[in-house]
């Protein structure tokens, strides 16, 4: 029972990281209608920047995190402006391949700068841990902070898209680009802001991920990126609460599957659950079913 609780908390903690990444994925997908395969690699860049800020400039963790967020925000805007904006009218597949190209570019640039030797990421925010059941159940401050960060980000994003002018513009653009433009919304700027927010979230996720799983390599971001994409689809791509629920469920399923069924098959179980959910709800858990017009 206690070990189950431990796995559950680990799962929620991992799921929170997936949820933060998936939030970025889902916002970008909702507005630009593109699968941004480079999102996972922005996580990796964020983690490396935070690592360098702490190891070489000996900045405190909070400042390092802010550094990583700033760099990733700029990176997100630059990538969008240089690689994706010229392809706004192009076919979906062309945009997808470009995103894959950007992903390779980021991975190989990181490989040249930081080499393929894994770096050991330091533990951030070590504030001790809570011990329950005579010390059988240890909840690290790491997982508490990760879960709290996820909840704060999700609330902030919901308020942002619901209440602010920029947030409303984003929803309008994701609904109908042409009509939004006619209403005087600057579509290009709105999409840039979305990429900026998504990339900043990716930086936070990268730092949180690496402080729980401390090996950092140029390929670190690839698998969490795919998992977060799965989480976004799981919850209904384009929906903010959907991304959060999808991420949490995915994390819990992965950790429980690895603990109770098979370590090797953890990923297979995650993907199998995704397939089963999509069979019964083809638009994800919270996605709106698309109506077909003839």
């Amino acid at each position: 029972m206690v070990s189950f609780l431990r796995f559950l908390i680990n799962g929620i903690s991992l799921g929170s990281v997936y949820a933060i990444i998936a939030l970025g994925y889902t916002m970008v997908y909702g507005i630009a209608k593109m699968l941004n395969f480079a999102h996972g690699d922005i996580i990796m860049v964020g983690a490396y920047i935070a690592f360098c800020a702490m190891a070489y400039l000996s900045l405190p963790p909070m400042l390092a995190l802010l550094c990583a967020m700033a760099v990733c925000t700029v990176l997100g805007i630059v990538i969008e402006g240089l690689a994706y904006r010229p392809l706004r009218q192009a076919t979906k597949l062309a945009v997808l391949i470009t995103a894959i190209g950007v992903s390779y570019l980021l991975q190989n640039t990181a490989l040249l700068i930081w080499s393929s030797n894994p770096k050991v990421f330091p533990t951030l925010f070590d504030l001790g841990s809570i011990r329950l059941f005579d010390g059988n159940l240890v909840i690290t401050s790491q997982s508490i902070i990760t879960i709290a960060a996820n909840i704060v980000i999700m609330l902030a994003l919901t308020l942002f898209t619901g209440r602010t002018k920029m947030g409303k513009a984003m929803r309008a653009v994701s609904e109908d680009k042409g009509a939004a433009e006619l209403m005087g919304i600057n579509v290009n700027r709105t999409i840039s802001v979305t990429f900026a927010i998504g990339s900043a979230l990716a930086a936070i996720a990268g730092v949180l991920l690496c402080s729980t799983y401390p090996t950092l390599q140029p390929t670190t971001g690839a698998m969490p990126g795919i998992k977060a994409f799965t989480a976004a689809v799981f919850g209904g791509i384009g929906s903010i609460p959907g991304a959060m629920i999808g991420g949490l469920l995915l994390g819990v399923i992965e950790i429980l599957g690895k603990a109770y069924i098979s370590t090797e098959l953890g990923d297979a179980i995650v993907f199998a659950v995704l397939i089963i959910v999509l069979l019964f709800k083809p638009a994800g858990l919270l996605g709106k079913p698309m109506r077909e017009k003839v």
């Binding site: 994409f229 799965t230 689809v233 297979a268 993907f271 995704l274 397939i275 083809p282 994800g284």
Partner: peptide, 22 residues
């Protein structure tokens, strides 16, 4: 093949990973 577009893409990705994992 019951799914459409991006959902179909993600499920084929998922199956590819499942095959490899198994």
């Amino acid at each position: 093949l019951r799914l459409r577009g991006d959902y179909l893409a993600i499920v084929t990705l998922a199956f590819g990973e499942i095959i490899r994992n198994v």
